[in-house]
Computed example of a mutant assay.
Amino acid sequence: YKLIIHTDTLIGLSFSGVHTWLEMYGCEWDDQTGAADAFDQFGYDGEDFVSLDLKELRWISPVQQGIPTVQKWNNDRAYLESDKNYFSTECIEWLQKYVQYGKSSLKKTVSPQVSLLQKSSSSPVTCHATGFYPSGVTISWQKNGQEHHEDVDLGELLPNEDGTFQKTSTITVTLDEWKKNKFSCVVEHQGKTKTENEIRTNPEGSVPIGIIVGALAAVVLLVIIGVAGYMVYQKKKGFKPVSGSDDGSNSSAHTVPQA
């Protein structure tokens, strides 16, 4: 697992033009072997400038222009020891915490609720699967026990407000054909299958409430992402790892010496 904690780009104007200064740092952890590593890299105008060799606990540079900075930073032993402690403890602790958060989400499984909906006897029949997690789902139709693909329209995957998902598939058949044959909607999710063949008739012109909620959730999600992105942009040092709690107390940010 790799955690890239922070990237920071500065753009400056000098007599020779516009230049960029970029930092990227983070850590890596192998949950099988327990091996850990870290990286702290700086770039200048899109090219590698200086980087931290954590094993040797020294800064190195692939270009001649970076030598003065390397020499200055390597003489600051207190900063090097601080970096060593940060990358070998706090960064790894946060990475392990995020891995656990991810595993708890990935292991979560919720089966879908399946309904057949029809506005009127002359309307298409919609198979509505909702409330499932994770998002992978397959919706298909059967006619007299055989797969049926004609006049079928598969809808888009939509999010629900509780973090689950919903999806629809609509089939267009005549009332006479529906009565003479047995049509079934088959929903497969996480190795489990649900089949539905009983139609619930909706009032004329109505729309399933789940579809409305899903569409609104999609819009709200876009707004939240936009606001979050703006806040992250405004906070140049937006990530400050903490030890032992998530409330921001006892925070210890990774700092950078002057070049």
Results as ranks from 00 to 15, higher is better:
158 L>G: 02
148 H>Q: 05
27 C>G: 09
133 Y>R: 06
179 K>L: 11
240 K>F: 11
177 E>N: 04
163 G>K: 00
3 L>F: 12
109 T>M: 13
58 R>D: 03
158 L>E: 05
159 P>S: 00
241 P>L: 15
2 K>A: 15
133 Y>C: 03
181 N>V: 03
215 A>R: 13
213 V>Q: 10
221 L>Q: 12
37 D>K: 08
103 K>R: 10
134 P>G: 10
19 H>V: 05
152 V>M: 01
117 L>D: 03
201 T>V: 15
81 E>A: 09
46 G>I: 03
128 H>N: 11
250 N>R: 09
11 I>N: 10
209 I>P: 05
16 S>D: 11
93 E>L: 14
52 L>N: 02
186 V>A: 00
45 D>N: 09
161 E>N: 11
99 V>P: 09
72 K>C: 01
105 S>D: 15
188 E>I: 03
160 N>F: 07
47 E>H: 12
139 I>C: 01
247 D>V: 07
4 I>Y: 14
219 V>R: 15
226 G>C: 10
197 N>Q: 04
158 L>V: 04
90 E>Q: 15
144 N>L: 02
89 T>L: 10
8 D>Q: 13
122 S>Y: 13
89 T>R: 09
57 L>F: 07
236 K>R: 14
63 V>D: 02
195 T>N: 08
57 L>V: 12
37 D>G: 12
157 L>A: 04
245 S>C: 06
143 K>Q: 06
114 V>N: 04
47 E>A: 12
228 A>I: 11
199 I>R: 07
145 G>Q: 01
48 D>F: 15
18 V>C: 01
74 N>P: 02
146 Q>H: 09
170 T>C: 01
178 W>P: 02
124 P>I: 02
238 G>L: 07
19 H>Y: 06
200 R>H: 10
205 G>K: 03
92 I>H: 02
33 T>L: 01
231 M>Q: 12
254 H>I: 08
43 G>D: 13
103 K>G: 05
123 S>M: 05
197 N>S: 06
158 L>R: 06
10 L>T: 14
85 N>K: 12
124 P>G: 01
194 K>S: 07
20 T>M: 04
90 E>N: 13
69 T>G: 09
5 I>G: 08
25 Y>C: 05
245 S>Q: 08
84 K>Q: 09
201 T>R: 15
65 Q>S: 15
225 I>K: 08
